[in-house]
Amino acid sequence: MTTNVSHGEHHHSHHFDSAEHEYSSDKEGLWLFMVTEILMFGGLFVAYAIFHSIYPEMFSEGASHLDWRMGFINTLVLITSSLTMALGIFYNQQNQPKKAFWNLIATILLGCCFLVIKYLEYSGKFHHGIYPGRFLDMAVVNPVHQNLGLYFGLYFCMTGLHGIHVVIGMSLIGWVAVRTYKGHFNSHYYTPVEGVGIFWHIVDLIWIFLFPLLYLVG
């Protein structure tokens, strides 16, 4: 390839015509991946909708066991983390890696904050005998509706799968933060940050639906 290049400059792989070709192919792959994410969570949302239409009172009872303030705070935490993630990309586009790095670190810290609140919620539920499905402790919870475990089966599956995504997202942000710090990215090449950003935003997007459906509507 060309000689006389400065350190850290990105070269597109040889199977792409140009850097632009590489960038658009990477993004196409990412959006296809996002579709699989939407459909995976979509299945759970459809399960929620079906059982909610069959047992509306049972879902209200389930939601009454949740503290909406916790979900509310976590929604604000994730929205803020989405902003810092977007700024992490923005400052890489502006050739300001230091600012990009600190925004990415802030995103990871907000992710930690989300998980701590989620941990407090989960441990509170376990403490009160609330487990998914048939593991729900009927003697301790003493539910009005005998199938309350169904609601918490959905609750733990949906928020649990979402929580796994938060952990994976934080790890990926850590990876691009280190690369940002090392000066791997600039206004011409920041594809990994853009891709990780799209993943992090879809995690936020799913929570945007989980919060009202699980905590408020019930």
Partner: peptide, 10 residues
């Protein structure tokens, strides 16, 4: 969700 998709996800 639309706001996140259009602006944050570009």
């Amino acid at each position: 969700a639309a706001l996140v998709l259009l602006y944050f996800m570009h």
